[in-house]
Design a binder for these strands. Structure first.
Length: 257
DNA sequence: ATGCCGTGGAAACCACGA
């Protein structure tokens, strides 16, 4: 089974790109972030026509997450990350697909740091970590994937020294990621490719993609029971080179069975 | 060192992103 995550940066503006990619790669399950569309403006019919059932949590202008699956509609488990009833951002949706719990997340960017946005990021990270602990404890096969807005190590940044004070790379954020993974999760891409430069995002500016000035910020975390099923993992890097593309590239894993 | 590009929404500019 192939599971992918893709920060589309506007699901309607990017629909031709999304449909082309779905048609070419045919992942079984897809997590989308940054829909930038209200609930009623999600292109459900076009996605159905492409062979995917979807659940989504939209929001006007910003954020928004979705889970797509071939053949069968994802069984929604929740569409809010627990722990803060006042959080109005659409950044989390969770579903059961073929016996696997899929958590699709869009972790806050957090810039500028320090500041209220950075505080929100750290709080959101804590809530995610608390929820993730429950998933581990449940023993269910689970995948937590999406745009984490964190480069876990120096290897995940084209020029680490330029990013040390950025909300995506500040020590406390890297520490938060480490703490989460330390619960027993497997960082799928890094585990299969321990020494490779792997990027999932390239800025639109300064020909970042051409210079390969990228960041690895979209991640796949696998619960202990899924670790042994991990067969392959990678980035559909070429998609970032398409016309009118997102600044992220799709990331995927292949699980046995 | 930098929002230089790109999106959505509102209003011909703004917020936001990483």
């Amino acid at each position: 089974m192939k599971i992918a995550t893709y920060n589309v940066n506007g699901v309607n503006g990017r629909l031709p790109i999304l449909l082309r990619w779905l048609g070419e790669k045919k992942p079984d399950v897809v997590c989308l972030q940054e829909l930038k569309a209200p609930q009623e403006k999600f292109p459900e019919q076009e996605i159905l026509d492409a062979g995917y059932h979807a659940i989504w949590h939209g929001q006007k202008s910003w954020n928004g997450v979705a889970i797509l699956a071939r053949d069968k509609k994802p069984e929604e488990v929740r569409r809010v990350l627990p722990g803060d009833p006042d959080d109005t951002h659409s950044r989390y949706i969770e579903a059961s697909v073929k016996g696997i719990l899929i958590g699709c997340l869009y972790l806050p960017n957090g810039n500028p740091a320090p500041g209220p946005k950075f505080d929100y990021k750290l709080r959101w990270f804590e809530r995610l970590t608390e929820h993730a602990a429950g998933l581990i404890k449940s023993g269910k096969p689970a995948v937590l994937t999406g745009d984490y807005n964190v480069m876990p190590t120096d290897l995940d940044v084209y020029k680490p020294e330029k990013w040390v004070n950025d909300a995506l790379f500040k020590p406390e954020v890297r520490e938060a990621f480490k703490k989460l993974v330390g619960q027993g999760w497997t960082d799928a891409l890094r585990t299969l490719h321990p020494n490779e430069k792997i990027y999932t995002f390239w800025d639109y500016f300064r020909d970042a993609y051409g210079r390969n000035a990228g960041l690895r910020i979209d991640h796949f975390l696998l619960s202990p029971s899924l670790k042994g099923h991990l067969k392959a993992a990678g980035v559909d890097r070429d998609v970032r080179g398409w016309e009118k593309t997102s600044d992220h590239a799709p990331v995927w894993i292949e699980l046995a069975g």
